[in-house]
Simulated assay, not measured.
Amino acid sequence: MPATAGLARIYQKQSILTASPGQLVLMLYDGALRFMAQAREAFSLPREDLRRIEHINSALLRSQAILEELRSNLDLERGGEFAANLSRLYDYYIRRLHEANLRKEETPVIEIEKFVRDLRDAWAEMLRTVSA
């Protein structure tokens, strides 16, 4: 492993350990978006490329896992209707990515990527407003 890759991993780990809960949520959104982008890149590989299916599958499973982590950490009791609605949205996103993976269709990935980006941007704006 190149020295810079090792340093990047150390920095990333330190970032996670020192991040606020709000920053962690933002990092999770960024991770989900990064994996959806990787899946979209894999869709552009030639159909006969055996790595295509593996890359799509891996990236979408990782995106789904992050969205499931976000969903499972919602406080439905304290969050009330807002948390319940967000839980339903995450469930929909996870199901659509699952469908995209089963059918190897890019369209649902593009759809969910836009929704997650909107959530991520709203969350980032909220963090900026609260810290200002």
Rank of each mutant, 00 (worst) to 15 (best):
M1W: 02
M1H: 04
P2V: 00
A3V: 10
T4G: 00
T4V: 09
T4F: 07
T4I: 10
A5S: 03
G6Y: 03
G6T: 01
G6C: 03
L7E: 15
A8V: 03
R9G: 01
I10D: 11
Y11M: 04
Q12D: 06
K13C: 00
L17Y: 00
T18L: 00
A19K: 11
S20M: 08
P21D: 02
P21H: 00
G22I: 08
G22M: 09
Q23V: 04
Q23G: 02
Q23Y: 01
Q23R: 14
L26N: 15
L26F: 10
M27S: 08
L28R: 14
Y29W: 06
Y29F: 09
D30T: 12
D30G: 14
G31N: 06
A32D: 12
A32N: 11
L33G: 02
L33P: 02
L33H: 01
M36E: 02
M36G: 01
M36T: 05
M36F: 01
A37I: 09
A37K: 15
A37L: 14
Q38Y: 07
E41M: 09
A42C: 14
F43L: 12
F43D: 13
S44E: 15
S44M: 11
L45W: 14
P46Q: 11
E48Q: 15
E48M: 07
D49H: 10
R51P: 00
I53V: 11
I53F: 12
I53L: 11
E54I: 12
E54Y: 11
E54F: 11
I56S: 01
I56K: 03
A59L: 09
A59F: 09
R62L: 10
R62A: 13
I66T: 05
L67I: 04
L67M: 15
E68K: 00
E69Y: 06
S72F: 01
L74A: 05
L74K: 03
D75N: 14
L76M: 05
E77H: 03
R78A: 14
G80H: 07
E81P: 03
F82V: 12
A84M: 06
L89H: 14
Y90V: 04
I94D: 07
R95S: 12
L97Y: 07
L97H: 09
H98I: 04
E99M: 02
A100L: 10
L102T: 14
R103V: 05
E105L: 10
E105W: 07
E106L: 11
E106T: 06
T107V: 08
P108W: 14
V109N: 03
I110W: 09
I110K: 15
I112R: 02
I112T: 12
E113W: 00
F115M: 10
F115A: 15
V116N: 09
V116S: 10
D118L: 08
R120V: 03
D121Y: 11
D121N: 15
W123N: 06
A124L: 09
E125K: 13
E125P: 04
E125Y: 06
R128G: 06
T129E: 13
V130H: 10
S131N: 14
A132E: 13
